[in-house]
Design a binder for these strands. Structure first.
Lengths: 151, 151
DNA sequence: CAAAATTTGTTTACAAAGAAACAATCTCCC
DNA sequence: GGGAGATTGTTTCTTTGTAAACAAATTTTG
């Protein structure tokens, strides 16, 4: 009868169904969507939070290294850091050893703020993948860690 | 001693190390990066390809349904479809039943083009996750499929 | 049936992220 | 020591995607 497709779950994806890159993109988008639904505007976006968190645990880290680890391009990192600086959350210091580089540290306010934010952030993170069993979630985490080359 | 961190793999991520959302974002970025390294400008970007692929397999699909399945927002979908229309790859038709909607079909050229593009696209997709064993890759795919709700 | 609410797609304005060109510094090597 | 080349960060421009307001058609409901 050639009934037009009316709902998303009737859509035929064919080979896309087992394409790793495609599935990963979908997964990521789903996580983001849920993040903004649940956490709303908690005044620190996930990107900002992870940047601040990493600086907290690596005081004086250089912009370039931070960017490499979080896969943020230099051009974009410049903007992120400046925005954080404008909010008085980080301070930049050009080290004596290498005057091209910039070393970044949290301000005391930011330390408090990040520790506080970490509560809801990780609470959310733990709720991600709630439709999986504990084992599956565990496996997924391990596989992703291997996939991205973390330990 | 306070040696500054010099390389990305010395960075302490602490709890971020097992945060599913974080790992997923990293994984996705890694896939994209490799995609552009390897496939370069093959004249069809991954987003465009998947849109066209899904239209190929669901001729006459509505913009809204397409967007729901691929998690593309309406506003953005409008632009994507227009761009594809400008390249003479899709045609739009307002169905009689519901004159708000738009049904999309591939042009004959696009059918050829997508089938051709599918060769390198899926070749790339199969190379994703080459640092995992076959079993692991298989598991990861299955877990992601469950995660995103693809039965 | 008519008013209210919803769906669908578009437009406009904006935010997030990348690419390329650039300047300053540093490293390497002759 | 002094250029050639690499690194580091910034700037500018462009692409990609989202948000909010809107218009038109449809569905709901009183």
């Amino acid at each position: 009868m050639d009934m037009p497709i009316r709902t998303a779950d009737q859509v035929e994806l064919d080979r896309l169904n087992s394409a790793l890159g495609f599935l990963m993109r979908l997964a990521q988008l789903k996580i983001y969507e849920r993040f903004f639904e649940e956490v709303g505007e908690h005044n620190l976006k996930p990107g900002e939070f992870s940047v601040l968190w990493v600086i907290l645990h690596n005081p004086g880290i250089r912009q370039s290294v931070l960017g490499q680890r979080l896969m943020i391009k230099r051009a974009h990192m410049t903007k992120l850091i400046r925005a954080l600086e404008d909010q008085n959350l980080v301070s930049r210091k050009v080290p004596d050893g290498d005057r091209r580089a910039v070393e970044i540290t949290l301000t005391p306010e930011a330390v408090t703020r990040v520790k506080q934010a970490s509560q809801w952030f990780f609470t959310y993170e733990e709720s991600v993948g709630a439709n999986l069993t504990g084992d599956e979630r565990q496996q997924l985490t391990a596989l992703l860690r291997k996939f991205v080359g973390l330990g």
